Amino acid sequence: MDQITFDKYVEDRYIKQMDYYQQASAKNQKKYKQFQWVLIILSALTPVIAALNGVKSGAINIYPLINVNILVVTVSSIVAILTTGLKTFNYQELWIKYRSTYEKLKPEIYYYNFNIGPYAANDVDRESVFVTRIEAILDTEHTQWPPAKSIPNTQDKSVDPPISKK
Rank of each mutant, 00 (worst) to 15 (best):
V72R: 08
I134D: 06
G54A: 13
I40S: 00
K8Y: 10
P118E: 14
V38D: 02
A51T: 05
K56P: 00
Q29H: 11
I134N: 07
K104W: 07
Q34S: 07
K30R: 13
L71S: 04
Y32P: 13
Q23I: 11
A51W: 10
A50Y: 06
P152S: 09
S100F: 00
A59F: 08
R126S: 15
V68Y: 02
W95T: 03
L82Y: 05
V38A: 04
Y20T: 00
L86T: 01
D12T: 09
I66V: 12
Y98N: 03
K56R: 14
A80N: 12
K87P: 04
K149W: 15
V73A: 15
P147G: 04
H142T: 01
V68S: 01
G85M: 09
K33W: 08
Q36W: 00
I81L: 14
I151G: 01
I40Q: 11
Q17S: 06
D125F: 13
I116N: 03
T140S: 11
V75R: 08
V79T: 13
A148N: 08
K104D: 05
P146G: 07
D123K: 06
L105D: 09
L71K: 06
L42V: 03
S25F: 11
R99I: 01
V129R: 11
I40C: 02
D123P: 00
V10T: 07
K30W: 04
Q155E: 15
T46C: 02
N61S: 12
L45M: 08
I78N: 01
V72K: 02
F89Y: 06
A24R: 02
Y119S: 02
S164G: 01
